[in-house]
Simulated assay, not measured.
Amino acid sequence: MSTNTRVAIVTGGSRGIGRRTAERLAADGFAVVVNYAGNEAAAAEAVEAITGEGGQAVAVRADVAEAAEVEALFDTAERTFGGVDVVVHCAGVLYLSPIAEVDLDALDRMHRTNIRGTFVVDQQAARRVRGGGAIINFSTSAGKLAIPGYAPYAATKAAVEAMGLILARELRGRDITVNTVAPGPTATALFLDGKDEATVARMAGQSPLERLGEPGDIAEVVAFLAGPGRWINGQVIRANGGIV
């Protein structure tokens, strides 16, 4: 491996937007560490897809809310590829409920992954990403859309947006950018699960482009922020086809 090879960690990189992002960064020449929480087979498929195209990738299991596991994830990236240049934190869970009916245990579980997990991953990223690198977190456009039932999820992502803005300023002088990507409705298993065809069609029609986003649409935004988009810093990029 060339000493000039850039290295990316993609949490939640085994499926959906995370997997497409891992493949897109590999196509740009990154060596990629595909993080997964439990689906080893899906992570292996993601690695095989990358290496089958001539890229470099390994899969590493870690619960993003567990500090020791995330530290080991970064250790593996450094030991295998020599360092960390980009961290894309895609991992997250979705729990929907009207506020009046929220299951507080379910809310706590989502907070653990979406909020604590972002703190844990960003903490290691802030310590280890090399100069010229990027930290990219994930939020949602659901908060701006104010969709009933999305308050528990949107609240966790509002916390993620606040973290990104502040971390960008805390890394002053390090030549590291920190941004947050906030997708709108995107055709992933996470989004489509439990929705009937009429609901999906209605949400697709909200965009002036009259379709759902695809994981590849979001991966292109991440690739720009991870590469040439060096003058974008401390921002929330709403990749939603113009819904809001």
Results as ranks from 00 to 15, higher is better:
Val58Ala: 09
Gln124Cys: 11
Gly132Ile: 03
Glu71Gln: 15
Val47Lys: 05
Leu165Ile: 12
Phe138Asn: 07
Asn179Glu: 04
Asn233His: 05
Arg24Gln: 14
His111Pro: 06
Ala22Gly: 05
Arg109Pro: 07
Val244Tyr: 14
Tyr36Arg: 03
Val181Ser: 09
Leu190Gln: 15
Leu171Ile: 08
Phe119Glu: 10
Thr80Val: 13
Asn240Lys: 00
Ala65Trp: 02
Thr180Cys: 05
Ala239Phe: 05
Ala8Met: 05
Glu214Phe: 09
Ala162Lys: 12
Ala182Leu: 00
Ala77Ile: 04
Ala65Phe: 01
Asp75Gln: 12
Asn233Ile: 02
Asn4Ala: 15
Ala26Asn: 05
Ala201Gln: 10
Gly82Arg: 05
Ala162Gln: 14
Gly13Ile: 02
Pro98Ser: 06
Val178Leu: 02
Gly12Pro: 06
Val121Gln: 00
Ile115Ser: 12
Val120Tyr: 01
Ile237Cys: 06
Ile218Tyr: 08
Ile136Met: 06
Asp196Gly: 01
Asn4Leu: 14
Gly213Ile: 00
Val93Pro: 09
Ala187Val: 01
Ile218Ala: 02
Ala158Asp: 13
Arg238Cys: 10
Val33Cys: 05
Val60Cys: 02
Arg15Trp: 05
Phe119Asn: 06
Leu190Cys: 04
Leu104Met: 14
Glu66Pro: 02
Arg172Val: 09
Ala126Cys: 07
Ala182Val: 03
Arg116Phe: 04
Val32Gln: 03
Ala219Gln: 10
Val70Arg: 00
Ile232His: 01
Glu161Met: 07
Asp28Met: 06
Ala62Ile: 00
Arg109Lys: 14
Asn39Asp: 15
Gln235Asp: 13
Glu161Ser: 09
Glu101Phe: 03
Gln124Gly: 13
Met163Asn: 13
Ala91Leu: 05
Ala155Val: 12
His89Asn: 15
Val88Met: 11
Leu94Ile: 13
Glu170Met: 04
Ala126Tyr: 07
Leu96Glu: 15
Pro98Lys: 06
Thr51Glu: 11
Gln123Ser: 15
Val33Arg: 01
Gly12Gln: 08
Arg116Gln: 12
Ala226His: 03
Pro228Ala: 12
Arg116Trp: 10
Ala67Tyr: 11
Ala59Tyr: 00
Pro185Asn: 07
Gly12Ala: 02
Ala182Gln: 09
Arg127Thr: 13
Ala41Trp: 11
Glu214Cys: 03
Ala146Phe: 11
Asn35Tyr: 04
Asp103His: 07
Ile50Asn: 04
Gly216Tyr: 13
Gln124Met: 14
Ile232Ala: 06
Phe74Glu: 00
Asp193Met: 12
Ala72Gln: 12
Ala223His: 07
Ala223Val: 05
Ala134Trp: 05
Glu101Asn: 13
Ile243Tyr: 03
Tyr95Glu: 05
Ala57Asn: 04
His111Cys: 13
Arg109Trp: 09
Ala46Arg: 11
Glu66Ala: 10
Leu192Arg: 13
Asp75Thr: 13
Ile147Gly: 11
Ala187Ile: 03
Gly38Lys: 08
Val236Trp: 10
Gly216Met: 06
Gly184Tyr: 00
Val58Leu: 12
Gly55Ala: 02
Gly82Ser: 07
Thr156Gln: 01
Asp103Met: 10
Tyr36Thr: 02
Ala27Met: 09
Ala151Ile: 12
Ala46Asp: 10
Ala22Met: 04
Ile50Leu: 02
Ala37Gln: 13
Thr76Gly: 10
Gly234Arg: 09
Leu167Ala: 03
Ala126Val: 07
Val34Ala: 00
Lys157Tyr: 07
Ile166Asp: 14
Asp108Met: 11
Asn179Thr: 01
Pro152Gly: 01
